[in-house]
C-alpha cells in the first residue's frame, strides 16, 4: 500500500528570489495505491510521475505533503527493500561493476544471502550476462537488472518508472506478465507510463496526472467507459442552426463537423435528443462518439501536455472543426 497525501514538489524555488523560475513538478497530489492490483500511473512527459515516485522513495524531499509506504515514510526504514522495490532509471548503475556485483551490494545492505541474488538473476532471465560488466548491457538487460534489484527483498510494494520504454515487443510482454504475476501474489504495483496503449492491457486501476495535478483516480473499466473524459455526441439534423442555438443556450459546446453534422461536447445522446425534441427539430442521426482509450487519455490530459513537437498534429481529442 502506498499513500500519497498532499504531495507537492517545487524545483528551483529560492525563498528570497522573486519573479521565479520555479517549476511546480508535483502539485498537491493525494491518492492511494492498493495491493493486489496493477495501478497504472499515467501522464504526459513532464507530468510529474518520476518526481512523485522519487518522493515516495525518499529520494527527493517534498516541498509539502508526505508519502507512506506500508504506513511509514520510506526513508526511515531499516530494511527498505523488504518494504518496497523500485526501478526508476535503468541507466543509473555503475557501468564498471558486473550486474551480479551490483545486486550483491544491494543484498549486503540487507544481510541477504548470495543465493537470493542468483534467484532474482534467474527470475529476470539475466543468466550468464550477470557476470559481465554493466557497461556492455543493452537497455533491455539493464531493465532486467533493475527489476531484479527491485525484487531482491521480496517486497510488498513495487514501483516501476516507465519500465517498457525502449523494450522490444518480447520485453514489453515480459514486463506485463511480471507485473500481473506480482499483483496476483497480493503485492502493490505502481507502474508509470506516458502511453495509454501500454496500460490498456496491463493496469487494473489508473491514476492519471497532468502538470503535477491529479486528473483521474479510477478503475480501468470506469476510465474506459469514458466517465472521466468529456463525452461527445454527433448529431445530424436538417435544422442545424436552430439545434446549435438551443444547445449553446444550454451551455454546451457545439462545433460543426466538416460534413454538415454537429459535434456536441460534454453531453450524452439523451440530452441532445431531448433538446432536439423541445426545439422541435428533426434528428436524422444521433451517436455518442466511441473513444479509444488513447483518445480518452488525450482528452483527459490534453490541456496538461507541456511539450509537444512543433508542427505535430494536435491529439485527436483536441481537434476543433
Amino acid at each position: 500500500m502506498i499513500q500519497v497525501r498532499g504531495l507537492t514538489k517545487t524545483y528551483g524555488a529560492r525563498p528570497l528570489a522573486h519573479g521565479s523560475s520555479a517549476v511546480r513538478a508535483v502539485d498537491d497530489l493525494t491518492f492511494d495505491v492498493q495491493p493486489g492490483k496493477v495501478t497504472g500511473f499515467l501522464g504526459p512527459n513532464g507530468a510529474g510521475k518520476s518526481t512523485t515516485m522519487r518522493m515516495v522513495l525518499g529520494l527527493d524531499r517534498p516541498t509539502s505533503g508526505q508519502a507512506l509506504v506500508g504506513g511509514r515514510p520510506f526513508a526511515t526504514l531499516a530494511e527498505p527493500l523488504r518494504a518496497a522495490g523500485a526501478l526508476l532509471d535503468a541507466q543509473a548503475v555503475h557501468p564498471g561493476r558486473s550486474g551480479r556485483d551490483h545486486l550483491r551490494v544491494a543484498a549486503r545492505t540487507h544481510g541477504l544471502p548470495a543465493r537470493r541474488v542468483d534467484e532474482v538473476i534467474d527470475q529476470v532471465g539475466l543468466g550468464p550476462a550477470a557476470r559481465r560488466r554493466v557497461k556492455g548491457y543493452s537497455l533491455g538487460m539493464r531493465q532486467r537488472l533493475g527489476i531484479a534489484g527491485a525484487l531482491l527483498g521480496d517486497p510488498a510494494v513495487l514501483l516501476f518508472d516507465e519500465p517498457m520504454n525502449g523494450l522490444d515487443l518480447d520485453g514489453v510482454r515480459w514486463v506485463r506478465r511480471l507485473v500481473r504475476g506480482l499483483a496476483d501474489e497480493g503485492r502493490t504495483v505502481l507502474l508509470s507510463s506516458h502511453l495509454m496503449s501500454e496500460m490498456e492491457q496491463t493496469a487494473d486501476h489508473l491514476v492519471i496526472i497532468g502538470r503535477g495535478r491529479l486528473i483521474a483516480d479510477a478503475p480501468m473499466a470506469e476510465v474506459m467507459r469514458g466517465e472521466h473524459a468529456g463525452r461527445k455526441v454527433v448529431v445530424r439534423t436538417p435544422s442545424t442552426d436552430d439545434l446549435a442555438g438551443a444547445l449553446l443556450r444550454r451551455g454546451l459546446q457545439v462545433h460543426p463537423t466538416g460534413d454538415g453534422d454537429l459535434l456536441v461536447e460534454g453531453a450524452t445522446a439523451e440530452t441532445v435528443g431531448d433538446v432536439a425534441l423541445e426545439t422541435g427539430v428533426a434528428v436524422h442521426r444521433l451517436a455518442e462518439q466511441q473513444h479509444s482509450l488513447e483518445e480518452i487519455y488525450l482528452d483527459l490530459t490534453g490541456d496538461s501536455v507541456q511539450y509537444r513537437v512543433a508542427g505535430a498534429p494536435e491529439p485527436a481529442g483536441q481537434v476543433r472543426a
Binding site: 522519487r54 522513495l57 525518499g58 529520494l59 520510506f74 526513508a75 526511515t76 526504514l77 531499516a78 527498505p80 527493500l81 523500485a86 526508476l88 532509471d89 541507466q91 543509473a92 548503475v93 555503475h94 557501468p95 551490494v105 544491494a106 545492505t109 540487507h110 533493475g146 534489484g149
Partner: peptide, 19 residues
C-alpha cells in the same frame, strides 16, 4: 562522486535510505 555521475546514488539510497 562516481554515483552522482552515473545516477547510481538513487539505487544506493533506496537500499540505505537513512542518510
Amino acid at each position: 562522486t562516481s554515483e552522482y555521475g552515473s545516477g547510481a546514488i538513487a539505487p544506493t539510497l533506496q537500499w540505505t535510505p537513512r542518510r
